[in-house]
Amino acid sequence: MRIAGIVVLGLLAALLVWGFSGINAIPSKEESAKAAWAQVLNQYQRRADLVPNLVATVKGAAEFEKSTLEAVVEARAKVGTMQLPPDLLTNPEAMRVFEANQGGLTSALSRLMVVVEKYPDLKATEGFKTLQAQLEGTENRIAVARKDYIDSVRIYNTELKTFPGVLWKSFLYADREPMQQLQVEPEKQDVPKVDFGASGN
């Protein structure tokens, strides 16, 4: 029986070592999720910075549909004046507002891009082609940044809820809350309809 006792002790020791090696897992996974979020904000800012230029270029086109442009300007202003609370990542309500505002700009911009199809002269200009490529690239960067954030939040939230992270959370990191997850590209689910007949909206 002595051998069995030694083996059991060894097993316990191995478990302890394994558990202790995870002591920094929660803070380090939290930091990578925060870094991924910073990248999301960075790419949204990049898009917001493109909008004034885009609006100015489109405005130059003769009689460009006013309501579409106004919707973009309005959505951009909403995003620009939005206050981000410090607990944004763990605050569902603040996150919902953030997503709604950014989503509003996304759909206003895609609507604008659809309407532009009616203005071939504008579409052919060098300035507009450049802006369009930049906007497409930025939307793709946003999608990538969101995906990275989703992945790292999944890892962080899992660490909080699974062994041995759940023990460390109760001992040392009791104030850590799971971070809010993002919807997977909601903007890609509702593709704007191309309707050249109704120009009212």
Binding site: P27, S32, K34, A35, A38, D151, S152
Partner: peptide
């Protein structure tokens, strides 16, 4: 002892 911005670069390829 943490690497904050390093993670941003490696987060995608870590999986």
């Amino acid at each position: 002892n943490r690497y904050i911005w390093y993670v941003a670069h490696s987060s995608g390829s870590s999986s």
